[in-house]
Nucleic acid binder design. Sequence first.
DNA 1: CAAAAAACATACTAATCAGTATTGTTTTTT
DNA 2: AAAAAACAATACTGATTAGTATGTTTTTTG
Lengths: 217, 217
Amino acid sequence: MTQEIKRKITRQTLIDKGYELINTYGYHAISIDTIIDEVGLTKGAFYYHFSNKHHFVEAIIQERVSKEIHSNFIEPLNERGNPIFILTDLFHDKLLKDKSLNQQLGSPLTNFINDLSHEQNDYGLQLQLKEIFDEWKIALINFLYRGIEGGCLNRHIDTESTAEFIIASVEGIRTLKKVTSNEGIFYNYMQQLKNFFDTLKIPKEELQGNQYYYAAS
Amino acid sequence: MTQEIKRKITRQTLIDKGYELINTYGYHAISIDTIIDEVGLTKGAFYYHFSNKHHFVEAIIQERVSKEIHSNFIEPLNERGNPIFILTDLFHDKLLKDKSLNQQLGSPLTNFINDLSHEQNDYGLQLQLKEIFDEWKIALINFLYRGIEGGCLNRHIDTESTAEFIIASVEGIRTLKKVTSNEGIFYNYMQQLKNFFDTLKIPKEELQGNQYYYAAS
DNA sequence: CAAAAAACATACTAATCAGTATTGTTTTTT
DNA sequence: AAAAAACAATACTGATTAGTATGTTTTTTG
């Protein structure tokens, strides 16, 4: 095995375990010793790949937290069709079906925001997390805009505040899942999210033979 | 000054500074030494009042986090009138006017949930936070129920999921406020929250005395 | 193959952590 | 006024922390 591959594997092993542990227990609760013990490596390996703990978590945010939002909540927005169907299906899949999201741990984005938002010696961690949020928001805004252009959504909706509201609600419900014993909390959430999506529809008065619109679910 | 008063002041001083620092930087990021230095006390004082750090944060949750939710978001629900007006005014006041809530720090409830949800040697901290959430939820459910009984809200709404959705959205938006530079994020939020509240209103058909109705789902 | 560089291991340090043991100082009670 | 109790300060401990300095092994390169 070539050196380059081995190096990348070692680095990735540290990143993956670090993400898992920090997302579960928090940045300050997890020591570097714990991480290297878990993967069977040593300080030498860790500090060869990362200059300090801050740069380590910075890499984790770039390579894992960002990816979690991108692959799960941004990329699916490229699908074509009725935007309300797409959004409903997307959140339904991610919250109720996708076991890989390990919902008992909440949302990684919110977890890392809470963990790192007031760090001293901040190497720009806040900015990185803000950018993930911004990307998600812009993707949703464009998605909603396409829905309006395609004649599926009410052209009077405010795309920015709608996008922010959707993100806030899903991040919020994933946080509450961490403490509640209500197993149906995501099912309940989908119910109300659909109600909210109804406010994005084209009013009946304007509905004149629009093929994409669907009557009350 | 009597001994009892002095004791209570010392205790309260520790609780207040602990709440402030832990809510800002996190439970694991703040040491007991930091807290006592900030208030000019010593370890002797701290450990006379609290047996350990866990019981300390337990007291903070009981006496400060719980109170933040109660006084700001639960007690105002006792007001009488149109429930949608009351809720709209309440959130508008708390998010856009009340400077004491120091919104750059996010929501204490979410902050503490994220900080303590996966503690080892958990002295029941999760349970305490869950109870705050439950109290808030039940208070909202009862509030919505009174709105239905009073003929102000659609009697077909699901009060539980509606309550959960409102809490999730406001906790979510307060979390996003921590990283965003968008100063108007709470204004935008109020806009969409009002849209959501529209889904709780009594349908026009019923308002006009029409006895017929159709289920929304 | 040998020298050089890369990738990781070992052993340490100084600082900080939660918590304890002891002592000192007020207040209250007797 | 003496004794007791309450409250807080001082000085410590062992464990853990992030980070460093220096080895050792493996791979690449001339």
